[in-house]
């Protein structure tokens, strides 16, 4: 419990730096602190599969973010302070935190989950699916259609990124193509 609080406070410090610092490269690296902190939290919360996945995904997303940061000239653009956006943001954040606090009062305490469905997975998962890892049993057997939908979402987003980043639609016409079509010089 104290370990979780220490790691979470480190992550909060990293996210404050990421939100408020002017230099974009530093902001990206500070967001990386939060990502690797989440990975360490997963490891201590007895979720080793997700910890491994989070490390890999965090490295890849840091590479993507550094790529778009170093692409541009890195000047600070906050010339005038936008009071309206700040006030609206603070109001929304305040409402959100108040609502979360109100919802947390009714939740069960930390460490005692309600496991109506998952108890069946834990007690009968080995006989029903033959998998020793219950996470693999859930994603590949009990909820396999969900995994299929996830694959569709990833395929669509990568296809979209590929289409947007493609600079030339077709290859340029060469002289030989010109002769074949018969366009005069």
């Amino acid at each position: 419990m104290a370990l979780f609080i220490v790691i979470l406070i480190l992550m909060i410090a990293g996210s404050v730096v990421a939100v408020e610092i002017k230099n974009m490269l530093s902001a990206v690296i500070a967001a990386g602190i939060v990502g690797f902190g989440v990975s360490v939290m997963f490891l201590f919360l007895k979720a080793p599969d997700i910890a491994i996945t989070q490390v890999i995904v965090e490295v890849l997303s840091l590479i993507i973010l550094i790529r778009i940061t170093t692409n541009a000239d890195n000047e600070a653009i906050e010339k005038k302070i936008d009071n309206f956006a700040n006030i609206v943001g603070l109001i929304f954040v305040g409402l959100f935190v108040a609502f979360c606090f109100w919802a947390f009062v009714d939740m069960t305490a930390f460490g005692t989950p309600i496991m109506r469905v998952s108890q069946h997975y834990l007690s009968a998962g080995l006989e029903e699916t033959g998998a020793a890892n219950m996470v693999a049993a859930v994603i590949l057997d009990y909820r396999a259609y969900d995994t299929l939908g996830e694959a569709v979402v990833i395929f669509t987003s990568i296809l979209g990124a590929f289409v947007i980043l493609r600079s030339r639609g077709k290859k340029k016409l060469t002289e030989k193509d010109m002769e074949k079509v018969g366009i005069p010089e």
């Binding site: 919360l45 007895k46 979720a47 599969d49 997700i50 996945t53 989070q54 995904v57 890849l60 997303s61 993507i64 973010l65 790529r67 778009i68 989950p113 496991m115 469905v117 998952s118 997975y121 834990l122 998962g125 219950m134 996470v135 049993a137 859930v138 994603i139 909820r143 969900d146 995994t147 996830e150 979402v153 990833i154 987003s157 990568i158 979209g160 990124a161 947007i164 980043l165």
Partner: peptide, 26 residues
């Protein structure tokens, strides 16, 4: 044993996050 159901769904959610991040970066 801890709850395996949110772990399985978060596993898909993390990878979807990488895909949407690539789209936003593009």
């Amino acid at each position: 044993g801890v709850d395996p159901l949110p772990q399985a769904l978060v596993l898909t959610s993390i990878v979807i996050g990488l895909g949407t991040l690539a789209l936003m970066a593009a």
